[in-house]
Design a protein around this nucleic acid. Structure first.
Lengths: 328, 328
DNA sequence: TTCCATCGAGAAATCGATTGCTCAGGTCCT
DNA sequence: AGGACCTGAGCAATCGATTTCTCGATGGAA
């Protein structure tokens, strides 16, 4: 791989001039510019970004730390982030923490070591990772999930309201014993969606709340639904706090031939791809996923520009999409 | 951010010793090791990976360039790659080319500039990107799709055989006018699956092959199916060459209330999440997705170890999963 | 013609970590 | 006791690009 010195020699100029041609471009004689560009082309020179980053002590990489790359919700969000990043001249490095706090900490450490220009994170709950981030000078934006015990730029949806609406929707449809399947404690979306559910139940439900906590995965939803079904007094409807768990729950119901929505009503949080094509079509609370990503990216751009600004907090709204699975 | 010199001063040793403590660990007095580690902890020192990479002239990052991050097939594959990478001490940088050759070229250029340790790519067809890669010293592995006009380590499934099986399955079920919806010319999976279909039609079909080319997206599948339906002599079955297009096709059929499998048989290539829960459940040709990723990652590890070895070519097999959408 | 301002380009320092080389001090053998 | 050898740690070069400083050349004004 040729270096800037090879180019300089080939063009008969100094390395400084080559650098100026490729970056500043000001104050360089057009004839030299031409010579340099020719040399660059002939040698197939490609600047060493590592050396540049070291000298400039900054990079053009963003670390985006999400908790499940298999979840279409996150990948849609990432698209929103990417589109902004690209326009602003940044590249996105996607890190998949897999809902594992230890992996999350590893990725955070790597992002800092690699001198990333910024971090966008959807926390899987590691307080240590959060502390490391806030204790460092790197700009951070929390998206979808709050960063535990930290005050940073944040973009979320109104999880509580969304969950309340979903639960009330089930109650209004005539379901009585509405249960809730939610995610791990300490993950803000799990806790807030649970709170929305509990509130709705408190204020208007004829039955006590029934809560199952599990991970945010398909298998978790399956298992949770199985345990609900085998309880002495099974619910007649369930509000499920994320998309993959909803699919798991539905699969469980399908396997056991429990009629949905006849014997069991179902509402899920998050968009589910082809939710309209499954049988029955799924009622969901959808979020402006792409917008969530875009907004987070914009906040990060602002934060990089003015590191001292007061942290922003943006709450987008979630919307109920009634379909078959909740209609009695 | 403290540097290695700050640590050295704090511990009363030279920077070289700090480096040796944190890396080599050989030939350092235990007392000094302790002093250094204490200083590291107290200062919250975190080695600057950029500087290290420059000095070592190598990194521990892999660029994984895929063509659609929204496609669950790719994300599953990425998991396989990640698991191997993690075990081998590499981090994975995911790059989403979005089926856009220009974006692909940009990412390839970035990977080279950033001195990535290796590249795993599922080409969206850019010959230029392929040339750049093979003309560079960086280890490359092609996965899922061949790298155009290049001889590199490759992991694919037997697309031709899979497509042939799928088509023969439809013919055996009694469908006559079987059409094919496939992806862009120049993308190996699109071309090979088409060839498998054509072979099956040649050898045993009562009707002429009907082919629609589109992109590998859901909307593309939708549009392709719409155009097939509005042709003077619509097919009675369709083989669709990837998962997202299959979903698009199914949505089109559902909207127009074309009975599947009654009036139209359907088989798709690639795993489709909850293919068993949609209505009707979808017959698919599935690939060992995770294994594809793992194998590619292993090849990359080998290639990095022995750059001069002869390129390997591994073909895994795809398997037909008959479900409702193709049963007459 | 001389002097000053301006412009353009090179020399060299720099970013932070790694590593080859060197050398001091101690051990062991003869 | 003297010399060979080994251990452990520091000095300084190095990776490749950027950027400050410096200086020569040019042009315009007096």
């Amino acid at each position: 791989m040729p270096t800037i010195y090879d180019v300089a020699r080939e063009a008969g100029v100094s390395a400084a001039t080559v650098s100026r041609v490729l970056n500043g471009a000001t104050t360089v004689d057009p004839a030299m510019v031409a010579r340099v560009l020719t040399a660059v082309r002939e040698l197939g020179y490609r600047p060493n970004a590592v050396a540049r980053n070291l000298r400039r002590s900054r990079t053009t990489l963003w670390a985006v730390i999400i908790s499940d790359i298999g979840n279409p919700f996150f990948t849609a969000m990432v698209r929103g982030i990417e589109d902004v990043a690209q326009r602003e001249g940044y590249s996105v490095v996607l890190c998949n923490s897999d809902e594992d706090p230890v992996k999350e900490e590893t990725y955070v450490a790597a992002a800092l070591s690699e001198q990333m220009a910024g971090v966008i994170i959807s926390s899987s709950g590691s307080v240590k990772a959060a502390k490391t981030l806030t204790g460092s000078p790197v700009p951070v934006v929390a998206v979808d999930r709050e960063l535990p015990r930290a005050v940073v730029d944040t973009v979320v949806v109104d999880n509580e309201a969304g969950a309340r609406t979903a639960t009330e929707h089930l109650l209004a449809a005539g379901y009585r014993r509405v249960a809730c399947i939610t995610g791990p404690e300490g993950v803000s979306t799990a806790d807030l969606r649970l709170r929305g559910y509990t509130e709705a139940m408190r204020s208007s439900a004829p039955a006590e709340p029934v809560i199952v906590r599990t991970d945010f995965r398909e298998q978790g939803g399956y298992d949770a639904m199985a345990s609900l079904l085998s309880s002495p007094e099974p619910p007649d409807a369930v509000f499920v706090a994320n998309n993959l768990m909803t699919v798991g729950a539905l699969r469980c119901l399908a396997e056991r031939e429990v009629a949905v929505p006849g014997r069991m009503g179902l509402v899920g949080f998050d968009e589910i791809p082809w939710a309209d094509l499954v049988h029955p079509s799924l009622t969901t609370v959808t979020q402006p996923t792409y917008e969530l990503g875009r907004t987070a990216a914009r906040l990060l751009v602002d934060r990089i520009a003015t590191p001292a600004a007061k942290p922003a907090r943006i709450v987008l709204s979630a919307e109920l999409h009634p379909r078959r699975s909740s209609s009695r």
